[in-house]
Structures are given as structure tokens and as C-alpha cells.
Simulated assay, not measured.
Amino acid sequence: MASVGLLFVGAVLFINGVMLLGWVDAKSAAPMNFFVGGLQIITPTYLIFTANGDTDVILAASGLYLFSFTYLYVALNLTLNLDGTGLGYFCLFVFISALVFSWLNFTRFADPGFGVIWLYWAFLWLLFFLLLGLKQEQLGRYTGAVCAIQGWVTGWLPALLLLTGAYDALTGTLAVVLAVFGVVVFGALFPLLGRRRSGGAVAASDPAVPA
């Protein structure tokens, strides 16, 4: 069940990313955030209630609420035109939590693939904290590109591997490939999209972040 939810996490990350890139109108992205936010409440709740006291299952499922509350927060911001500062500081909380879940996957769960994937998500939530909480608007397009790419490599790809039963045999390889890919691609994109434009102003064409 969690694998199905992960597939749609990929979808909403992609939609939110292209929204920040200015390819999708902000309010038109709200429904997908509501859909996936709701799904990511149902999924961990079901897993916890059917865990029969298995602390590892409960621990793993608890991390899914970080996603659901983020997406619902984004959806409400877009729908009600709220200021994004509160969401930004919530993303700081999630960033720190994601680092802990990454460490748990490397150690307690012996799952290096999701250890690296949680590091990806921690990086993304850190970018949202900088963008929304600290108002670093020059990071808008870079954050959008990172978010859209992560939709495919941290949601769609591992979900399909899990759903087809291929993930366990590939988790080590996936960890190495994603680690190299993230450093190279996100590092290369930053000089192109992540720096303030000449004159210190953000271009008028830059998309508005949820605010």
C-alpha cells in the first residue's frame, strides 16, 4: 500500500516542481496536493492500525505523515492565498526529521536505497524552508527543477521497483546511482537556476511561490 502512495508522491512532486518553474498555474496544482495529501493520511493510518504492535512498521509509517501534512499545507496555501512563511518553517521541521529517517534507513532498516532517497527529500525540504521561510526568492526556479526531478527519481522509479518486486535486489545499486546523480545534476543546475540575477532582482517572469 505504501508503494502505491509513493507512486503518487512522485506525481505531486512533479506537479509542484513545474508549478514553481512557471509551467503550471499555481491554483491548478492545488487539487493534486489535496488528493495526494489525503492519500498519505489514509495510507500510514491503515499501516499503523494493522501493524499488530510492530514498532518498525509503525516507525516507517509515521514518516508518511510528513508528506501528507506538507501537501495539504501547500494545497491550502494555494487555495486560500495564504502567506507561505508558516509552511516554510514547517519544512524546516520536516528537513530535520527527514535526516533522522535517512539515518534510520541506513542503520535500523538496512535499506541504503531509501537512506539516500530520504536525503534527497531532506534537501528538497531545506530548499522550501529557504524559499518560503527565509524568503530566498532567487531559489524559486532551482527548487522547482529539483522538485520536478525528484518526483521521478524518488517517487515514480522506486515505486515501480517496489510494485514489481525488483527493489530489494537493487537497493544498493540504487543508492549509489542516486547519490552520484543527485550531486552531479543538482550541483550543475544551481549555477543556472539558483543564483540571484544581475542587479539583485528576481525576474518578473519567475513564478510566484505558494503565498
Rank of each mutant, 00 (worst) to 15 (best):
F49D: 02
F49Y: 08
N52C: 07
D54Y: 08
T55K: 15
D56Q: 15
D56S: 15
D56C: 07
V57Q: 15
A61E: 11
A61P: 15
S62C: 08
S62P: 15
S62E: 09
S62N: 11
L64W: 15
F67E: 02
F69I: 15
F69L: 13
T70H: 14
T70N: 13
T70R: 10
T70S: 13
L72D: 06
L72P: 04
L72M: 07
Y73F: 14
V74L: 08
L76A: 08
T79I: 01
T79D: 03
L80R: 10
L80I: 02
N81M: 00
L82M: 10
L82V: 07
D83P: 03
T85E: 14
T85K: 15
T85Y: 11
L87E: 13
G88F: 03
F90I: 11
F93M: 14
F93N: 12
F93K: 12
V94L: 11
I96P: 10
I96A: 13
S97V: 12
S97P: 09
A98Q: 09
A98W: 10
L99Q: 07
F101H: 08
S102F: 03
W103L: 13
L104N: 12
N105M: 03
T107I: 08
T107L: 03
T107A: 00
A110M: 06
G113V: 09
V116C: 03
I117H: 01
W121E: 01
A122R: 05
F123P: 01
F123I: 09
L124R: 07
L124G: 04
L124A: 03
W125R: 01
W125I: 00
W125V: 03
F128I: 06
F129K: 06
L130T: 07
L132A: 09
L134N: 14
E137G: 06
Q138Y: 12
Q138K: 14
G140L: 05
R141F: 00
R141N: 02
Y142K: 11
A145F: 03
V146H: 10
A148L: 02
Q150H: 11
Q150D: 14
G151Y: 02
W152E: 00
T154Q: 09
T154D: 11
G155K: 07
W156Q: 05
P158E: 01
P158H: 02
P158A: 00
A159K: 06
A159P: 12
A159S: 12
A159I: 09
L160E: 04
L160I: 10
L160Q: 08
L161M: 11
L162M: 09
L162E: 07
L163S: 00
L163W: 08
G165T: 10
Y167C: 01
Y167F: 12
Y167K: 05
L170N: 09
L170V: 11
L170W: 03
T171V: 12
T171Y: 02
T171I: 05
T173V: 13
T173H: 13
A175K: 12
V177E: 13
L178K: 10
L178T: 12
A179W: 11
A179M: 10
A179P: 13
V180W: 09
V180T: 13
F181N: 09
V183T: 13
V185R: 05
V185M: 09
F186H: 00
G187T: 02
A188L: 07
P191T: 05
P191R: 01
L192W: 02
L192Y: 02
